[in-house]
């Protein structure tokens, strides 16, 4: 399950982690992504995470749930998560599929995502519902 090259990268940027997906991931690669990220949040003492999913061709129910779980796990580890780069077609498909993604914070791109984290860091009371 955890063999083969990594198809994602997790880079540190100040107090934040930038996790980018490089290509379409299958389910086990997504799970590996989730595990690695949660681990890195602890080892890097990250306060915020930006997950860039621009390279995902499809965000189906499993991928959506995994992202939601990642955000929730990160929150429990003390980090805020912003998901960026959801393509317009993918967003359309997610809505059509009936995905409930309300609790996850999103931003258009990496820049917006980092700005969002900065805003959250300045005003810790502005927690997402």
């Amino acid at each position: 399950m955890n063999d083969g090259p990594r198809l994602f990268s997790i880079l540190r940027q100040g107090p934040y982690l930038i996790a980018s997906v490089h290509t379409a991931l299958d389910d086990s690669q997504l799970v590996r992504f989730q595990n690695d990220l949660v681990e890195r949040i602890g080892s890097d003492r990250a306060r915020g995470v930006v997950i860039d999913v621009a390279a995902l061709d499809v965000l189906d129910s499993f991928a959506s749930r995994t992202l939601r779980d990642m955000a929730e796990m990160a929150r429990l580890r003390g980090a805020v998560t912003v998901i960026v780069g959801i393509q317009p077609d993918v967003a359309f498909a997610m809505v059509q599929l009936g995905m409930d993604t309300g609790r996850v914070v999103t931003a258009l791109d990496l820049e917006e995502g980092l700005a969002e984290l900065d805003r959250g860091a300045r005003d810790p009371t502005a927690q997402r519902p």
């Binding site: 389910d27 499809v58 189906d60 129910s61 317009p88 077609d89 359309f92 498909a93 059509q96 599929l97």
Partner: peptide
């Protein structure tokens, strides 16, 4: 269209996952 392609791919993804 690109949007339809993504919709179709998403549906295929769901059904194929069910098989696995």
């Amino acid at each position: 269209s690109a949007t339809d392609v993504t919709l179709i791919a998403t549906a295929v993804s769901e059904m194929t996952r069910n098989i696995v």
